[in-house]
Protein backbone atom coordinates (compact mmCIF):
# COMPACT_ATOMS: atom_id res chain seq x y z
CA UNK A 1 0.00 0.00 0.00
CA UNK A 2 1.47 3.36 -0.93
CA UNK A 3 2.01 5.96 1.79
CA UNK A 4 -0.58 8.32 0.35
CA UNK A 5 -3.42 5.86 0.59
CA UNK A 6 -2.27 4.83 4.08
CA UNK A 7 -2.50 8.46 5.07
CA UNK A 8 -5.93 8.74 3.44
CA UNK A 9 -7.25 5.69 5.24
CA UNK A 10 -5.80 6.80 8.57
CA UNK A 11 -7.55 10.16 8.54
CA UNK A 12 -10.39 9.95 6.06
CA UNK A 13 -12.05 6.67 6.77
CA UNK A 14 -15.68 7.64 6.30
CA UNK A 15 -16.99 4.57 8.09
CA UNK A 16 -15.05 5.46 11.23
CA UNK A 17 -16.31 9.01 11.04
CA UNK A 18 -19.87 7.88 10.46
CA UNK A 19 -19.63 5.58 13.47
CA UNK A 20 -18.39 8.40 15.71
CA UNK A 21 -20.73 11.10 14.41
CA UNK A 22 -23.90 10.33 16.42
CA UNK A 23 -22.01 10.30 19.71
CA UNK A 24 -20.14 13.46 18.80
CA UNK A 25 -23.40 15.24 18.06
CA UNK A 26 -25.41 14.01 21.02
CA UNK A 27 -22.71 13.77 23.70
CA UNK A 28 -19.45 15.43 22.65
CA UNK A 29 -20.76 18.69 21.20
CA UNK A 30 -23.19 19.46 24.06
CA UNK A 31 -20.49 18.72 26.63
CA UNK A 32 -17.88 20.86 24.90
CA UNK A 33 -20.40 23.71 24.70
CA UNK A 34 -21.46 23.32 28.32
CA UNK A 35 -17.82 23.29 29.49
CA UNK A 36 -16.80 26.25 27.31
CA UNK A 37 -19.88 28.43 27.91
CA UNK A 38 -19.99 27.82 31.68
CA UNK A 39 -16.28 28.53 31.98
CA UNK A 40 -16.63 31.62 29.75
CA UNK A 41 -19.37 33.03 31.98
CA UNK A 42 -17.68 32.21 35.27
CA UNK A 43 -14.25 33.16 33.91
CA UNK A 44 -15.51 36.54 32.66
CA UNK A 45 -17.22 37.27 35.97
CA UNK A 46 -14.10 36.36 37.96
CA UNK A 47 -11.98 38.18 35.36
CA UNK A 48 -13.96 41.40 35.91
CA UNK A 49 -13.49 41.11 39.68
CA UNK A 50 -9.75 40.55 39.14
CA UNK A 51 -9.55 43.53 36.77
CA UNK A 52 -11.23 45.87 39.24
CA UNK A 53 -9.14 44.52 42.12
CA UNK A 54 -6.05 44.91 39.95
CA UNK A 55 -6.59 48.66 39.53
CA UNK A 56 -7.77 49.21 43.09
CA UNK A 57 -5.94 51.73 45.24
CA UNK A 58 -6.08 49.21 48.09
CA UNK A 59 -3.01 47.04 47.99
CA UNK A 60 -4.88 44.23 49.80
CA UNK A 61 -7.01 43.89 46.68
CA UNK A 62 -4.32 44.68 44.13
CA UNK A 63 -1.65 42.27 45.32
CA UNK A 64 -3.79 39.12 45.60
CA UNK A 65 -5.17 39.86 42.11
CA UNK A 66 -1.60 40.18 40.83
CA UNK A 67 -0.42 36.95 42.44
CA UNK A 68 -3.51 35.05 41.26
CA UNK A 69 -3.01 36.26 37.69
CA UNK A 70 0.69 35.39 37.71
CA UNK A 71 0.05 31.88 39.04
CA UNK A 72 -2.87 30.88 36.84
CA UNK A 73 -1.40 32.47 33.72
CA UNK A 74 1.98 30.95 34.40
CA UNK A 75 0.94 27.31 34.88
CA UNK A 76 0.26 24.98 31.95
CA UNK A 77 -3.51 24.54 31.55
CA UNK A 78 -3.17 20.76 31.84
CA UNK A 79 -1.33 21.12 35.15
CA UNK A 80 -3.98 23.46 36.57
CA UNK A 81 -6.81 21.19 35.50
CA UNK A 82 -5.14 18.20 37.13
CA UNK A 83 -4.26 20.16 40.28
CA UNK A 84 -7.81 21.47 40.70
CA UNK A 85 -9.53 18.29 39.52
CA UNK A 86 -7.50 15.95 41.67
CA UNK A 87 -6.59 18.30 44.51
CA UNK A 88 -10.14 19.47 45.12
CA UNK A 89 -11.73 16.09 44.41
CA UNK A 90 -12.33 15.31 48.12
CA UNK A 91 -14.03 18.69 48.54
CA UNK A 92 -15.96 18.21 45.29
CA UNK A 93 -17.03 14.77 46.51
CA UNK A 94 -18.85 16.40 49.44
CA UNK A 95 -20.52 19.05 47.29
CA UNK A 96 -21.32 17.25 44.02
CA UNK A 97 -20.57 13.64 44.75
CA UNK A 98 -18.12 11.61 42.67
CA UNK A 99 -18.38 13.86 39.64
CA UNK A 100 -15.28 15.55 38.22
CA UNK A 101 -17.30 17.59 35.72
CA UNK A 102 -17.93 20.68 37.90
CA UNK A 103 -14.28 20.69 38.90
CA UNK A 104 -13.35 20.69 35.23
CA UNK A 105 -15.54 23.77 34.70
CA UNK A 106 -14.03 25.40 37.80
CA UNK A 107 -10.47 24.74 36.61
CA UNK A 108 -11.21 26.09 33.12
CA UNK A 109 -12.87 29.16 34.66
CA UNK A 110 -9.95 29.87 36.97
CA UNK A 111 -7.49 29.68 34.07
CA UNK A 112 -9.70 31.81 31.80
CA UNK A 113 -10.28 34.42 34.52
CA UNK A 114 -6.54 35.10 34.81
CA UNK A 115 -6.32 35.94 31.11
CA UNK A 116 -9.70 37.67 30.86
CA UNK A 117 -8.88 39.72 33.97
CA UNK A 118 -5.78 41.08 32.27
CA UNK A 119 -7.74 41.79 29.08
CA UNK A 120 -10.42 43.70 31.01
CA UNK A 121 -7.84 45.56 33.10
CA UNK A 122 -6.03 46.75 29.99
CA UNK A 123 -9.33 47.91 28.50
CA UNK A 124 -10.46 49.74 31.63
CA UNK A 125 -7.09 51.45 32.03
CA UNK A 126 -7.17 52.59 28.41
CA UNK A 127 -10.23 54.78 29.09
CA UNK A 128 -9.15 58.40 29.49
CA UNK A 129 -9.08 59.80 33.03
CA UNK A 130 -11.27 62.65 31.75
CA UNK A 131 -14.17 60.21 31.43
CA UNK A 132 -13.97 59.40 35.13
CA UNK A 133 -13.70 63.10 35.94
CA UNK A 134 -16.71 63.84 33.74
CA UNK A 135 -18.80 61.21 35.51
CA UNK A 136 -17.65 62.23 39.00
CA UNK A 137 -18.44 65.89 38.20
CA UNK A 138 -22.07 64.89 37.58
CA UNK A 139 -22.25 63.45 41.08
CA UNK A 140 -21.62 59.75 40.43
CA UNK A 141 -19.63 57.88 43.06
CA UNK A 142 -16.41 56.14 42.01
CA UNK A 143 -18.21 52.80 41.84
CA UNK A 144 -21.11 54.16 39.79
CA UNK A 145 -18.74 55.98 37.45
CA UNK A 146 -16.77 52.77 36.90
CA UNK A 147 -19.86 50.64 36.39
CA UNK A 148 -21.81 52.99 34.15
CA UNK A 149 -19.13 54.87 32.25
CA UNK A 150 -15.62 53.43 32.46
CA UNK A 151 -16.10 49.64 32.39
CA UNK A 152 -18.57 49.61 29.46
CA UNK A 153 -16.11 51.64 27.38
CA UNK A 154 -13.09 49.62 28.48
CA UNK A 155 -14.73 46.26 27.80
CA UNK A 156 -15.88 47.42 24.38
CA UNK A 157 -12.32 48.25 23.44
CA UNK A 158 -11.06 44.76 24.27
CA UNK A 159 -13.94 42.71 22.87
CA UNK A 160 -11.73 41.19 20.13
CA UNK A 161 -9.18 40.01 22.70
CA UNK A 162 -12.00 38.67 24.87
CA UNK A 163 -13.47 36.65 21.99
CA UNK A 164 -9.98 35.29 21.28
CA UNK A 165 -9.91 34.06 24.84
CA UNK A 166 -13.24 32.31 24.34
CA UNK A 167 -11.74 30.53 21.35
CA UNK A 168 -8.84 29.38 23.50
CA UNK A 169 -11.36 28.20 26.08
CA UNK A 170 -13.22 26.03 23.58
CA UNK A 171 -9.94 24.36 22.70
CA UNK A 172 -8.77 24.04 26.31
CA UNK A 173 -12.06 22.38 27.26
CA UNK A 174 -10.60 19.24 25.63
CA UNK A 175 -8.12 19.02 28.51
CA UNK A 176 -10.72 18.04 31.09
CA UNK A 177 -10.46 14.48 29.77
CA UNK A 178 -7.56 14.18 32.25
CA UNK A 179 -10.11 14.06 35.03
CA UNK A 180 -11.62 10.75 33.94
CA UNK A 181 -15.12 11.69 32.88
CA UNK A 182 -17.87 9.09 32.61
CA UNK A 183 -19.18 8.18 29.16
CA UNK A 184 -22.02 10.70 29.12
CA UNK A 185 -19.69 13.55 30.16
CA UNK A 186 -17.14 13.12 27.42
CA UNK A 187 -16.48 16.09 25.19
CA UNK A 188 -15.59 16.12 21.49
CA UNK A 189 -11.91 15.34 21.82
CA UNK A 190 -12.40 12.48 24.24
CA UNK A 191 -15.01 10.83 22.04
CA UNK A 192 -12.71 11.16 19.04
CA UNK A 193 -9.86 9.70 21.03
CA UNK A 194 -11.94 6.79 22.33
CA UNK A 195 -13.09 5.90 18.83
CA UNK A 196 -9.53 6.17 17.56
CA UNK A 197 -8.35 3.86 20.34
CA UNK A 198 -11.00 1.21 19.64
CA UNK A 199 -10.72 1.25 15.87
CA UNK A 200 -7.04 2.06 15.54
CA UNK A 201 -8.03 4.68 13.01
CA UNK A 202 -7.58 8.44 13.55
CA UNK A 203 -10.52 9.59 11.43
CA UNK A 204 -12.78 10.13 14.44
CA UNK A 205 -10.15 12.49 15.88
CA UNK A 206 -10.12 14.40 12.61
CA UNK A 207 -13.91 14.62 12.83
CA UNK A 208 -13.54 16.06 16.35
CA UNK A 209 -11.10 18.57 14.86
CA UNK A 210 -13.70 19.56 12.29
CA UNK A 211 -16.22 20.12 15.06
CA UNK A 212 -13.76 22.41 16.86
CA UNK A 213 -13.17 24.36 13.65
CA UNK A 214 -16.92 24.73 13.14
CA UNK A 215 -17.08 26.37 16.55
CA UNK A 216 -13.92 28.46 16.44
CA UNK A 217 -13.70 29.69 12.83
CA UNK A 218 -16.99 31.67 12.99
CA UNK A 219 -15.75 33.15 16.27
CA UNK A 220 -12.44 34.25 14.70
CA UNK A 221 -14.44 35.95 11.96
CA UNK A 222 -16.67 37.49 14.60
CA UNK A 223 -13.52 38.91 16.22
CA UNK A 224 -12.48 40.50 12.94
CA UNK A 225 -15.97 41.89 12.42
CA UNK A 226 -16.12 43.35 15.93
CA UNK A 227 -12.64 44.77 15.52
CA UNK A 228 -13.58 46.45 12.25
CA UNK A 229 -16.80 47.82 13.72
CA UNK A 230 -14.94 49.24 16.70
CA UNK A 231 -12.25 50.85 14.55
CA UNK A 232 -14.71 52.38 12.13
CA UNK A 233 -16.80 53.63 15.01
CA UNK A 234 -13.93 55.63 16.47
CA UNK A 235 -14.64 59.34 16.98
CA UNK A 236 -11.63 60.50 14.96
CA UNK A 237 -12.84 58.83 11.78
CA UNK A 238 -16.54 59.20 12.39
CA UNK A 239 -16.68 62.94 13.02
CA UNK A 240 -18.49 64.72 10.24
CA UNK A 241 -16.97 68.11 10.36
CA UNK A 242 -14.67 68.05 13.25
CA UNK A 243 -11.40 66.51 12.14
CA UNK A 244 -9.57 69.76 12.48
CA UNK A 245 -11.02 70.37 15.91
CA UNK A 246 -9.17 67.45 17.40
CA UNK A 247 -5.99 69.19 16.38
CA UNK A 248 -7.20 72.52 17.68
CA UNK A 249 -7.99 70.78 20.95
CA UNK A 250 -4.48 69.39 21.20
CA UNK A 251 -2.99 72.81 20.67
CA UNK A 252 -5.15 74.40 23.28
CA UNK A 253 -4.04 72.04 26.02
CA UNK A 254 -2.17 73.76 28.85
CA UNK A 255 1.27 74.75 27.77
CA UNK A 256 2.59 78.27 27.62
CA UNK A 257 2.85 78.75 23.89
CA UNK A 258 -0.43 77.03 23.13
CA UNK A 259 -2.32 78.94 25.79
CA UNK A 260 -1.00 82.26 24.63
CA UNK A 261 -1.78 81.41 21.04
CA UNK A 262 -5.37 80.66 21.96
CA UNK A 263 -5.78 83.91 23.84
CA UNK A 264 -5.64 85.63 20.49
CA UNK A 265 -9.25 84.85 19.82
CA UNK A 266 -11.35 86.89 22.14
CA UNK A 267 -13.92 87.95 19.59
CA UNK A 268 -17.42 86.98 20.58
Amino acid sequence: MDPLSTLWETFFDWDSMRAALPEMLTVGLPNTLILAISAALLGSLLGMLLAVAGISRTRWLRWPARVYTDVFRGLPAAATILLIGVGLAPLGMQVWGPNPYPLGILALSLIASAYIGEIFRAGIQSVEAAQLEGARALGFSWGEAMRLVIIPQGVRRVLPAWVNQLIALIKDSSLVYFLGLVASQRELFRIGQDHAATTGNESALLLAGLFYLTLTVPLTHAVNWIDRRLRQGRPATAAEDDDALALAGQNALPGDAAARASTGRDER
Binding site: A130, A135, A137, L138, V149, A252
Partner: peptide, 14 residues
Protein backbone atom coordinates in the same frame (compact mmCIF):
# COMPACT_ATOMS: atom_id res chain seq x y z
CA UNK B 1 -21.36 67.86 42.69
CA UNK B 2 -25.01 67.51 41.75
CA UNK B 3 -25.46 71.09 42.93
CA UNK B 4 -22.41 72.35 41.05
CA UNK B 5 -22.35 71.72 37.31
CA UNK B 6 -19.05 71.57 35.49
CA UNK B 7 -18.10 71.90 31.83
CA UNK B 8 -14.67 70.76 30.65
CA UNK B 9 -12.29 71.84 27.93
CA UNK B 10 -12.50 68.43 26.22
CA UNK B 11 -16.29 68.09 26.81
CA UNK B 12 -15.91 64.68 28.55
CA UNK B 13 -19.10 63.35 26.96
CA UNK B 14 -19.56 59.59 27.17
Amino acid sequence: RQRIGMVFQQFNLF
